[in-house]
Design a protein around this nucleic acid. Structure first.
Lengths: 153, 153
DNA sequence: AATTGACAGTTACGTTTGTAACCATATCTA
DNA sequence: TAGATATGGTTACAAACGTAACTGTCAATT
């Protein structure tokens, strides 16, 4: 037993935050490469597009909550998508602070194409992780999601 | 059945990269807040500290591989930790390109304290996710790690 | 021994990020 | 109805980031 063992029984390789982060980076990066190369989208932009594409009309704040993105990220992504004419804003009638966000026809088209990529990647992931691995990961994530819902803020 | 349903059966909420990333951010951020607030450490710095604390003497390249960090991140973290006198470098005898990195006494002390925080957080996570959730997440992550090892690069 | 290529680590540069301050509007309270 | 407070969204600024180019050293080839 040498000094290292005495010092601590902590192992970074076993530490969940570390493992989760590394895995997320790996998984996300492979997909990010696709939409970045093909469409020049940043991650916040893709997420905003996906949120609006799948949920329809939302406010910027709602997008942020939905995707757990900081509001400045959302703000910048919305601006970028708007410039690209993939998204349009409309004012809320009663509350002029609020803006409703919606995809344009072009935005919807892009969303659908990206959706195809996403599905292809999902299939690839299933092969990569195996059915059991995927299932385990998914239920683990569900546990985290429940914990997040409890730890409301 | 409205337009959204027809448009696509893709659901962002089910998309693994999205879920993984969101979960990782949630889990990692809670812990990052601790070492950031108490020690003013960045994530790369904490990771480098942890790598050296748990594995003893390593080179910068080894730290990078171990923690999957880009070499510029490692370089900057090493510089910061060195300035803080938590880490010292020694030249490799045979190869003058290589530097061995090691924690100083102060660095080791800090590592041990952070290790206590990390263990406390692990325990908290187990409560938060439940034993089953934790187990599922862990084996899901193992699947990802195996996939990463296969997709060598 | 000179040339070439590989590798460890650092640095310069442009981009992305989070924090905090900000503007405008809405709501609550007195 | 005035003042305080909260909220949606943007912006300024500094810190952190990745890419690519760089320095210095080693190994292989000639």
């Amino acid at each position: 037993m040498d000094a290292d063992d005495v010092m601590s029984d902590f192992d970074l390789e076993q530490f969940l935050p570390f493992r989760l982060n590394r895995a997320a980076e790996f998984i996300a990066l492979r997909f990010a490469a696709a939409y970045k190369a093909e469409y020049g989208l940043t991650r916040p932009e893709w997420r905003t597009l996906a949120a609006l594409g799948s949920s329809g009309r939302m406010t910027a704040t709602e997008v942020g909550v939905h995707s757990t993105m900081h509001k400045t990220k959302v703000s910048r992504a919305v601006f970028a998508l708007e410039e690209r004419r993939w998204l349009k804003r409309t004012q809320h009638e009663d509350d002029r602070r609020v803006e409703h966000l919606e995809l344009t026809a072009a935005g919807t088209k892009a969303y659908q194409e990206l959706t195809r990529l996403a599905r292809a990647y999902s299939a690839e992931l299933e092969k990569l992780l195996g059915r059991d691995g995927l299932q385990a990961l998914s239920s683990g994530l569900t546990a985290v999601e429940n914990a997040m819902a409890q730890t409301r803020r």
